[in-house]
Simulated scan of single mutants.
Amino acid sequence: MTNPEWLKPGMYGALLGAVFVGVVGFSWGGWMTGGSANKLASEMARDQVIAALVPICHDMSRTDNQRLAKLATIQAATSYKRRDAVMDAGWATMPGSDSPNRDLAKACIEGLNLDAS
């Protein structure tokens, strides 16, 4: 089958246009693949769950009988060990869970008033 001579530049233009639209769409247009969208959604969901659990962590710290001693231990710990200190205090272990949550412990530290304890 022979194609008309005028069809060849049109085919090249359509092919280059499709490539250009794809590059621009994924680079600046905000397009993403399904895998990237799922990863983004999972991260957002995890962050929202942690944010919802932070008040429980703070309430557990306020009602703890040994609050002052545990806060002193957390405050005395170096900045990168404070998360472990909150986990050891038991404030990052949610009711019904057997182990503490590292992300929750990190978020809980930010709300604890360590300077005014």
Results as ranks from 00 to 15, higher is better:
53 L>P: 00
89 A>D: 04
25 G>A: 14
105 A>F: 06
24 V>K: 02
35 G>I: 00
74 I>A: 02
66 Q>G: 15
62 R>Q: 14
114 L>V: 07
74 I>P: 04
13 G>T: 10
34 G>L: 13
52 A>Q: 13
40 L>S: 11
31 W>Y: 12
31 W>K: 05
70 K>H: 05
65 N>C: 01
6 W>Y: 14
42 S>V: 08
79 S>V: 14
53 L>G: 01
8 K>A: 15
95 P>V: 09
51 A>Y: 04
21 V>W: 06
37 A>F: 14
99 S>R: 12
24 V>W: 07
49 V>S: 08
96 G>R: 07
77 A>H: 04
42 S>H: 05
52 A>I: 09
108 C>W: 08
32 M>P: 00
60 M>V: 01
37 A>R: 15
60 M>E: 06
80 Y>I: 14
28 W>K: 11
29 G>V: 08
46 R>E: 15
95 P>F: 07
23 V>D: 01
85 A>V: 00
61 S>Y: 08
84 D>C: 00
39 K>Q: 11
42 S>N: 13
51 A>W: 04
80 Y>Q: 15
63 T>R: 13
94 M>I: 10
84 D>H: 09
8 K>Q: 12
63 T>W: 12
83 R>I: 03
116 A>R: 15
54 V>W: 01
100 P>R: 03
89 A>Q: 04
24 V>N: 02
102 R>D: 06
9 P>C: 04
13 G>E: 06
65 N>R: 12
84 D>V: 07
86 V>E: 01
68 L>D: 14
27 S>W: 11
79 S>G: 04
11 M>K: 10
15 L>Q: 04
44 M>V: 15
13 G>K: 02
77 A>L: 02
97 S>P: 00
68 L>W: 05
88 D>P: 00
82 R>K: 15
32 M>Y: 07
66 Q>C: 03
87 M>R: 11
48 Q>I: 09
96 G>K: 03
32 M>F: 09
86 V>I: 14
10 G>K: 07
79 S>K: 12
72 A>M: 09
73 T>C: 02
104 L>G: 03
107 A>E: 13
53 L>A: 14
24 V>P: 00
79 S>P: 03
20 F>C: 11
8 K>V: 09
26 F>W: 10
31 W>Q: 05
51 A>E: 12
93 T>A: 07
18 A>T: 14
107 A>S: 13
87 M>K: 15
10 G>D: 03
36 S>M: 14
70 K>L: 07
89 A>V: 05
34 G>R: 02
101 N>I: 11
22 G>H: 03
41 A>H: 06
23 V>H: 05
15 L>Y: 09
99 S>C: 00
45 A>R: 14
116 A>P: 00
17 G>H: 01
4 P>I: 01
93 T>Q: 11
27 S>Y: 10
77 A>V: 07
76 A>D: 11
116 A>G: 06
7 L>I: 12
82 R>F: 03
46 R>Q: 14
66 Q>R: 08
15 L>V: 13
5 E>A: 13
32 M>G: 00
52 A>G: 10
79 S>D: 15
107 A>K: 06
108 C>S: 08
14 A>I: 02
5 E>L: 13
65 N>F: 11
68 L>Y: 08
16 L>P: 01
84 D>T: 09
1 M>T: 03
98 D>Q: 11
20 F>I: 07
105 A>S: 07
97 S>E: 13
3 N>W: 10
106 K>A: 11
68 L>P: 00
44 M>F: 04
104 L>S: 04
91 W>A: 04
48 Q>A: 15
61 S>L: 07
